[in-house]
Design a protein around this nucleic acid. Structure first.
Lengths: 190, 190, 190, 190
DNA sequence: AATGAATGAGGCTTCATTCAT
DNA sequence: GATGAATGAAGCCTCATTCAT
């Protein structure tokens, strides 16, 4: 048998892509990505058939990571607000500690190179969260908005909060809580 | 590099840029933009010294247009909520009727090519709005958040709303009002 | 007005292509062709949109040149055999004096990159010759073969003759006449 | 480089090469050939040291096959014309039933990658035929041309005939016989 | 001022070949 | 022997920018 494909290498390429994309945007050359990943340029193309595929896979991988992080330690036996707060904290912590990944996710979200299919798949990652929001809407705890709408508001508010936290670290904790408070008032029935 | 003469041409180039950028993202070539604008490739560079300058000017121009649109017919002698609602409607109408411009603004906002300075200037367009928000905070009508934070929440909620309106035109008006309602609860003291 | 496109440059590229293709076959790189033509590699692509187009244009240009050469000084008021002999001589002289062009024409004729359309057009160059053959067939001077068939036999015999002339220059004149004799017997009614 | 073991694999590679070369010309990648042959990319290189060697071997193999086919059932005790006609039929049948092989042989014949040596060897395959032609020339049955010249005329006329048969199958049999007739008149003394 | 041909660096991708498994 | 991942040199083509006209 020949050398098997290495997950390490695949990950190294994805990580390198994050770094180069964060620095150069969509114009990040595959050569720079490969070099930073420590592989030959040709090798990149044994793991991803094209630059476009690399970008799409990266997009999905980041979405999956974010989703994973948000669900880590999710408290099942507390009230809705506490649960939401937990997810809020996880999101913000990730966004602050992985600024390049966050930046790249934002870039890719508006990129022409990300296919509609990838966006669909990326969204489906969050369908259990969506479902759980639906349940709360049905119970009358949240305003009667489509759960995806609520989810998008959550994401938008989180992004705004992270931006302010990063730009003004002194007041970071204040933004963190204000953001959640604003979100909560936006969607909860009190 | 002689002085450019025609504002028409400058505008034609900016408009063409919107179209090509919307279709191709950051990889939109200046040649395509020039062609669509009806000028020669070289002519583009008498109006903008470089592609980067073109992108920055476009960014500022779009920000200015949005700001202009939002302030059109601003009602000075009603209550805060009505004022905000007016601006909300203006923003959403613009976003829906100029989807390419909106798309390009989102792209440019995450682009490496837009300088920090441009972002600063773009933000200052809205400083009168910001000032007026500050006044309302001081009067206790809005939560005690920094006015830029409130402004960002406004923008973020508007973007979310437009996305849903565009994607699901049947329920557009419902999203429009739900979005405003959510925003208002997020920031107002009731 | 900007600099106009130069026919000289176009021709230089085509001539360079002949040389490099003769030496390297279809794997001739555009970079070598451009260099030999004395232009930048990018310039090649302002004259030909792609390598494939370059090859097709070259094919047509060679066909046209051959056709032109064959008709130079075509004697209209002699008998058929003398006319054919004239064309024979022209073909062979060209083939011998332009061995690279001949070689490249042979290569391109079997190349995947030459479109069916190019082959059609290339063949139509010779339609007046074909017509004149048809007339002779009708008059009973040539065997009752389709004129294109006779034309192909002509070409094939000429190619064989040139090959032997080139390979064995001492007997060149003998092959030249033997070839014509064989062709004539193949198609003429005596 | 160990010794290859399986003739089956060697043949599979050669057959795959025919197919891929017919479709893609000289730019046929070894990887595609290997895949179609059902072996690993690397395996190809245990059977052929380089792509060039593969092409040369393929060329020789095709020449040998053609030679073999042409001599199958060769009638030794009939007159010259019948013998030639037999060979003619064999050649044409092969050419029509194996169009890819024929196409590839034509390609390789004009390819830079085929060495002079291979061409020599390929020609020698036909030396017994050549010898037999020489005898007929000596006996005054054929024109006094070098036998290789006659052989080349034979090949050229056969190729022309096959081309027309393939392109116009309705008249195939007519081309088949006309072609032979033309060839015979070209070289025979009647 | 306007034009668009010219430039050549650089981008993405392919591919013959090697070599670890 | 067989495999196919790894390599990196090329290959084709694009494009921002310059400059002759």
């Amino acid at each position: 048998m020949a050398r098997p494909r290495s997950n390490d290498k695949r990950d190294a390429i994805l990580n390198a892509a994050v770094e180069v994309l964060a620095e150069m945007g969509e114009r990040a050359p595959t050569s720079k990505i490969a070099k930073l990943a420590g592989v030959a340029e040709g090798t990149l193309f044994t793991y991803f058939n094209s630059k476009e595929e690399l970008l799409n896979q990266l997009y999905l991988s980041l979405k999956a990571e974010l989703r994973h992080v948000m669900m880590l330690g999710y408290p099942t036996d507390t009230d809705l607000k506490a649960q939401m707060h937990h997810v809020w904290q996880s999101y913000l912590n990730w966004g602050i500690s992985a600024p390049q990944k966050r930046k790249v996710m934002a870039q890719l979200s508006t990129s022409e190179q990300i296919t509609e299919q990838s966006k669909q798949i990326g969204m489906q990652s969050f369908c259990d969260l969506t479902q759980s929001i639906q349940n709360q809407v049905d119970k009358g705890c949240l305003r009667d908005y489509p759960p995806l709408f609520i989810g998008s508001i959550f994401g938008a508010m989180a992004e705004v909060s992270i931006n302010f936290m990063v730009q003004d670290p002194m007041s970071a904790e204040s933004y963190r809580e204000s953001g959640f408070e604003a979100f909560w008032h936006a969607v909860a029935i009190m």
